[in-house]
Simulated assay, not measured.
Amino acid sequence: MEKYKNISNFEQLLEVEHGKMGTESRVQYEENSQKFIISEMLKEARKEANMTQEQLAEKTGTKKSYISKIENGKGNIQLSTLFRLFEVGLNRKIGLTFL
């Protein structure tokens, strides 16, 4: 618990747990975090559209198993596929922010 004593914000906590930006552990953490966020956003948008994974896959030319992998944070997704799922399949716009 001593290593947490002087932590006053989330960035400091991340550095203690995963290292500074650019370290292997931190890169892996950030990648996993983004996968989780995308998976939850896709799942929520699909449910709001009252679509099954199979219906979304059919509408976007992918497979249900691929949609399932993405929604469970198990697969990597290409940017073009991400756009197709949200914009073609779910009629949602995507915006990207680079920090």
Results as ranks from 00 to 15, higher is better:
residue 39 S to G: 14
residue 34 Q to A: 12
residue 52 T to H: 07
residue 45 A to M: 09
residue 10 F to C: 07
residue 51 M to F: 05
residue 54 E to V: 06
residue 17 E to D: 14
residue 31 E to S: 08
residue 27 V to S: 11
residue 2 E to M: 11
residue 22 G to Y: 11
residue 73 G to F: 00
residue 25 S to Q: 14
residue 15 E to F: 03
residue 49 A to N: 04
residue 87 E to D: 12
residue 58 E to R: 02
residue 57 A to L: 06
residue 65 S to A: 14
residue 7 I to P: 09
residue 7 I to W: 11
residue 65 S to Q: 10
residue 69 K to P: 00
residue 44 E to P: 03
residue 40 E to Y: 10
residue 79 L to I: 06
residue 81 T to C: 01
residue 96 L to K: 05
residue 21 M to Y: 13
residue 23 T to Q: 13
residue 69 K to A: 08
residue 32 N to C: 11
residue 49 A to M: 03
residue 21 M to G: 08
residue 6 N to L: 10
residue 86 F to Q: 06
residue 56 L to A: 05
residue 26 R to C: 02
residue 38 I to F: 01
residue 4 Y to C: 07
residue 20 K to G: 09
residue 21 M to S: 13
residue 96 L to I: 15
residue 90 L to F: 02
residue 30 E to G: 04
residue 93 K to Q: 12
residue 23 T to I: 10
residue 68 S to K: 02
residue 21 M to C: 11
residue 80 S to N: 07
residue 64 K to Q: 15
residue 37 I to G: 05
residue 7 I to G: 08
residue 36 F to W: 08
residue 58 E to N: 15
residue 32 N to Q: 14
residue 26 R to A: 07
residue 43 K to F: 09
residue 60 T to L: 04
residue 26 R to W: 08
residue 77 I to T: 06
residue 8 S to K: 14
residue 42 L to G: 00
residue 30 E to F: 09
residue 38 I to Y: 02
residue 71 E to S: 03
residue 48 E to P: 07
residue 3 K to Y: 07
residue 56 L to W: 02
residue 10 F to R: 08
residue 1 M to P: 06
residue 14 L to S: 03
residue 74 K to P: 01
residue 89 G to I: 00
residue 42 L to A: 03
residue 83 F to Q: 10
residue 98 F to N: 03
residue 96 L to N: 06
residue 92 R to G: 02
residue 99 L to E: 13
residue 60 T to K: 01
residue 83 F to I: 15
residue 9 N to K: 13
residue 54 E to S: 14
residue 51 M to A: 03
residue 78 Q to W: 05
residue 26 R to G: 06
residue 71 E to V: 01
residue 90 L to T: 02
residue 66 Y to N: 00
residue 39 S to L: 01
residue 44 E to R: 14
residue 13 L to C: 09
residue 7 I to S: 08
residue 37 I to P: 01
residue 41 M to S: 08
residue 51 M to C: 06
residue 57 A to T: 03
residue 73 G to T: 02
residue 48 E to R: 15
residue 44 E to T: 14
residue 8 S to T: 15
residue 48 E to Q: 15
residue 40 E to F: 08
residue 51 M to V: 04
residue 12 Q to N: 06
residue 8 S to R: 14
residue 11 E to I: 10
residue 67 I to M: 00
residue 35 K to H: 09
